[in-house]
Amino acid sequence: MSLRRITRELADLQRDPFSTGPVNLASDEDPRHWVAKLDGPPTTPYENGIFAINIQFPEDYPQKPPRITFITPVFHPNVSAQGNLRMAEFEWDQWCPAITIRVLLLSIQAMLSDPILLQGCILDEEAAALFLQDKQKFDKGAREWTAMHAV
């Protein structure tokens, strides 16, 4: 089931391209490793940026969630310096096998637009503090990171 589902999802994304960027195999040798490129959401500090994301499927996908990390550095409360991200959809106890990669990528783009500031979701304390205390300074920092790393 796992490889069949992965193959079907990739074919669906390539036949009906993701509205914010392409999704492809990282290499022809590993169908469980994809790279997506997300456009930064309009009217956010990430606008005009293109963010590369690694998608690694476990052997028991879709029963377990894929591991998704940012390749492109991003200044955001829910993304660590190593590119890890924290969202309920990726937590083992919140994961639902009906969730598709298309839905996950849309969720990531929504997270870029609207950080999740709940306890346990913050991976970059500096970004979270700036977002809460000085939104203009946060936006400036996020725009600078986007210009340096994602343009």
Rank of each mutant, 00 (worst) to 15 (best):
A52S: 14
D16C: 10
E144R: 11
P62D: 10
Q136S: 10
V103M: 09
D39P: 01
P66G: 08
Q63R: 14
I53R: 04
I53F: 03
N48R: 15
E59K: 14
F138R: 03
D134C: 12
M87W: 11
F75P: 05
S19T: 03
Q82H: 08
Q14R: 12
P41K: 03
A98N: 10
Q14E: 14
P17D: 11
P77K: 08
P41V: 01
T44E: 00
Y61A: 02
F51Q: 09
D93S: 10
F18L: 12
E91D: 03
Q56H: 15
P42E: 03
T43R: 13
D12C: 02
P77N: 12
A26W: 00
Q94W: 02
C96N: 13
E91C: 02
L10I: 07
A128Q: 04
L25S: 12
N24K: 15
K137P: 01
V74F: 05
I68S: 07
E91Q: 06
E59A: 14
D114S: 08
E89G: 02
G49V: 00
N84C: 10
A81G: 10
P77Y: 13
R143E: 01
D124H: 09
S27W: 11
I6C: 02
L38I: 01
N78V: 08
D16I: 05
V74Q: 02
N48G: 09
K64W: 01
D39G: 05
D139F: 11
E126C: 14
T44G: 00
I101E: 00
D12T: 01
T100L: 04
E29C: 02
R15M: 06
I101C: 01
F131T: 05
S107N: 15
P22M: 13
Q63E: 15
I71T: 08
K135C: 08
W92R: 04
G83R: 13
E9Q: 15
I50D: 04
N48Y: 12
S19C: 02
D124A: 09
I122M: 09
P22E: 11
E89P: 00
L106Y: 09
Q63D: 14
T20Y: 15
M87E: 05
P62L: 08
V23D: 06
